[in-house]
Design a protein around this nucleic acid. Structure first.
Lengths: 202, 202
DNA sequence: CGCAGATTTAACCAGCTAGTTAAACCATCC
DNA sequence: GGATGGTTTAACTAGCTGGTTAAATCTGCG
C-alpha cells in the first residue's frame, strides 16, 4: 500500500512538474498532467484538490530543491576563490540536469514575488552574511578589487543561470548546433569561475 | 482619419504589449487588452483578427526593438574594450526603461524557438562575425586572455540581462529595498564593463 | 468472503475565453 | 444629404477548462 501510494503520488508530482515547466502555470492543463501520469483527471483531483494547490507544491518543490544547494556552499568556510569555483560548479552541474527549472522559477517568482518571500527567505537570509563579510574583508585587505558583495553575487548568478534561460537566443545568435552549444556549456564549469576570479583578483 | 486610425492601432498595440508582458501569452486576455486600450473586444478583433496574430506582432515588435541595438553596437569599428563598454551601457539603459521585456522575450523564445529563428536571424548573423574576429585577433595578439568569442558573448549578455530576470530573487536574497536595488543596478552601467575587461585583459 | 481504500469510467456543470454577428451610431468627406 | 468606414453595443456560439459526482471496478488485507 505504501509503495503503491507513494508511487502514484510521485508519478503525479513528476508529471505535474514536467508539464508546468514546459507550459508554464497558465499554459499547463490538468488533463495533460493526468495523461502523463497515466491516470485520469478524477484521480488527479482526488490526490491534489485543485490546480492551485498542486502548482503551489510544484513551485515550492522546485525552489527548495535548487536554492539550498547554493546557500549551503555560500555558507561554508572555504576560501573566497575556492568558494566561487565550487558554487559555480555545483550550480552548473545541477542546472544542466534540470535545464527547464530556471525559466520556470524565474517566471513564477516574477509573477508572484510575495510567495517566494514567505516560503524560502526567512530561514536563508543569514547564509549570505558570511559571503558578504568574506567579500568585504577581501576588499579591505586589498586581496581583490573593490566590489560590493551584491554586485559580485549578481555577477556569479548571472553567469551561471542566464545561458540556460537564453539558450535559444545564444544558440541562434552564435549559430551553434545542439552539440556545439552543449560543449560550450561544459567549458563554463571551469571558465566561469576563472573569469570571475580574474575580474576581481587584485 | 489617418491620425485617428494610427492612434487607435497604436493604442491597441501598446495595450497588448503591456498585457502580454505582464501576464504572458497564455495568461493574457483579449478582453483586458480591449479594456486597457479603451475600446471593446469587437473592435479589437476588427483590427487584429486573432489573438495569435496579435501576439505574433507583439513578439516580433519586442524582439526587433531590442536585438538590433546590440547588433548595431557589435558591428561598429570600436576598439574591443570600448565596444564592451558601449554595448553594456546601451543595453542596460534600454532595458532599464523596459524591464519586463527580457522576461517576455526569453519566455516566448524558449516556448517557440523556430519563430525566433525565422524572423530575426538571417539578416543579423553576419553582425557577430566582426565581433568574433575582433576577439580572436585580440587573443592571438596576446592582448586578452584566451577566451572564445562565444563564451565572452554569453558572459556579457548574462551580466547585462539576468539581473532584470532575477530581480525578485536577487532583491530578496540580498535583502535590498526597491531603492537599494535600483542603485545597485545603476552602478552596473559602469561596473559590469570594467568587470568584464578586468577578466579578459592580459 | 467482505471490508476499505485506490482507481476508473463517464457523464456532467459552471465559468471563462476567443471569436462572430448584426444592427445601430457617429464622424468625415464628397 | 448620403455614402463610407470607424466604432459601439449586446447578444450569441462553440469550445475548452477546472472541478464534481456517483456508480462501478479493482486490489490487498484481515
Amino acid at each position: 500500500m505504501d509503495t503503491q501510494k507513494r508511487s502514484t503520488e510521485e508519478l503525479i508530482l513528476e508529471a505535474a512538474q514536467a508539464v508546468f515547466l514546459e507550459k508554464g502555470l497558465a499554459g499547463a492543463r490538468m488533463q495533460e498532467i493526468a495523461d502523463r501520469a497515466g491516470i485520469n483527471k478524477a484521480l488527479l483531483h482526488y490526490y491534489f484538490r485543485s490546480k492551485e494547490k498542486l502548482s503551489a507544491l510544484i513551485i515550492e518543490r522546485a525552489i527548495s530543491v535548487i536554492l539550498p544547494r547554493v546557500m549551503a556552499v555560500l555558507d561554508t568556510d572555504l576560501e573566497l576563490f575556492d568558494k566561487i569555483r565550487l558554487v559555480v560548479d555545483t550550480y552548473l552541474t545541477f542546472v544542466s540536469r534540470n535545464s527547464f527549472l530556471p525559466l520556470f522559477i524565474v517566471n513564477e517568482v516574477n509573477r508572484n514575488p510575495q510567495f517566494f518571500f514567505r516560503t524560502v527567505v526567512d530561514n536563508k537570509r543569514t547564509h549570505l552574511d558570511k559571503f558578504r563579510r568574506q567579500v568585504e574583508e577581501a576588499v579591505a585587505q586589498g586581496r581583490i578589487h573593490p566590489i560590493s558583495p551584491a554586485q559580485l553575487f549578481m555577477n556569479v548568478m548571472s553567469l551561471v543561470i542566464f545561458p540556460f534561460l537564453g539558450k535559444p537566443i545564444i544558440q541562434v545568435g552564435l549559430g551553434l548546433s545542439e552539440e556545439e552549444f552543449k560543449r560550450e556549456m561544459e567549458h563554463r564549469h571551469t571558465e566561469v569561475a576563472e573569469f570571475v576570479i580574474r575580474a576581481i583578483r587584485a
